[in-house]
């Protein structure tokens, strides 16, 4: 009897994990792999819903046109600028605030709770809240700056050429620094306290403790947190859409791609934009993972 069931049970054993995974894999493929393949296919076509022509294969035509498209390169620069500046500020502020919260036991729970508030607010809501605060005539920010004597009349923060991007970065920093703080706080908890005791006994000053104990031991956590933030920042869409509409000054690659696809109905060209976005983001992730040597999959 044993001899009869053994081969069957080993066959079941081999197929079982795939049966359990199948529903998830099928749904995931329907929303990622298949649309990605379709986008790739469309990117080689002239397919515009605007001129009524039938879609036709044009090879790398869309990509070649993109290389010479000033607006596209402008969007690439905007996105890179936004991602680098906002993630840098969020990381520095995140580490500083996390260390501040971690420094004393008193009030730690309350501060952590406060940190969750901006994180829980939907991005569109924060964009609207800040748009109102930054309003040129009635905004509270201008009112306070005028009262303090820094400026004489209100500034149109979200409309000005130089200030719109700064405003978007400020809102992003406000909204996502708390996420960094929460992750860094969790990372700080893993560091054994007796390391600091030993450092104190040896007379190591505060900055040395930070650079030789805290930072190296925090790094694995920090590296993953930065990767997640970076990937989020390069695909940013809603903040720029709500705060400064589709202005060229602040258009990100996601805004530009959607504009081609939906507003101009140029499916072929828009798909080529999307494919370049995909390649660029994959490249950023791959280089980052290589350079930082973080291990995302355990075992």
């Amino acid at each position: 009897m044993m001899a009869e069931t053994a081969p069957q049970s080993s066959w079941v054993k081999r197929i079982e994990p795939w049966l359990l995974l199948a529903p998830m894999l099928i749904v995931l493929a329907t929303v990622t792999a298949w649309p990605l393949a379709r986008t790739a296919y469309l990117s080689f076509m002239h397919a515009s819903l605007d001129d009524g022509d039938l879609p036709r294969f044009i090879g790398f035509g869309n990509y070649l046109a993109l290389m010479k498209d000033g607006d596209w390169w402008h969007a690439v620069r905007n996105t890179a600028f936004f991602a680098v500046i906002s993630v840098t500020l969020e990381t520095l502020a995140g580490v500083a605030i996390a260390l501040l919260i971690d420094s004393q036991i008193k009030g730690r729970g309350a501060l952590r709770a406060v940190m969750l508030i901006p994180w829980a607010i939907p991005t569109v809501v924060s964009a609207q809240m800040w748009q109102w605060m930054l309003h040129d005539q009635y905004g509270v920010v201008n009112a306070l700056l005028i009262k303090l004597g820094f400026i004489s009349h209100g500034i149109a923060w979200t409309a000005g050429a130089g200030t719109a991007m700064a405003a978007i970065i400020a809102v992003d920093v406000w909204q996502t620094t708390p996420f960094m703080v929460l992750l860094i706080l969790a990372g700080l908890q893993i560091i054994p306290r007796d390391l600091y005791e030993a450092a104190k006994v040896d007379g190591a000053p505060g900055w040395a403790q930070f650079f030789y104990i805290t930072l190296p031991l925090l790094w694995p956590t920090l590296a993953v947190a930065i990767l997640f933030r970076l990937l989020d920042a390069v695909r940013m869409f809603d903040l720029a859409y709500v705060l400064s509409s589709k202005s060229r000054e602040t258009a990100t690659i996601s805004i530009y791609a959607r504009q081609q696809l939906v507003d101009f109905q140029d499916v072929g060209y828009g798909s080529a934009v999307a494919m370049l976005v995909f390649l660029m983001i994959s490249l950023v992730a791959a280089v980052y993972i290589q350079v930082t040597k973080i291990r995302l999959i355990s075992e």
């Binding site: 390069v234 996601s254 696809l261 999307a274 995909f278 995302l296």
Partner: peptide
């Protein structure tokens, strides 16, 4: 893990068809 890093804009045109 790769899918979790997926930028949504990339599948917009393909997903629209689906």
């Amino acid at each position: 893990l790769g899918a979790s890093m997926f930028p949504q804009i990339v599948v917009l045109s393909g997903l629209f068809g689906t």
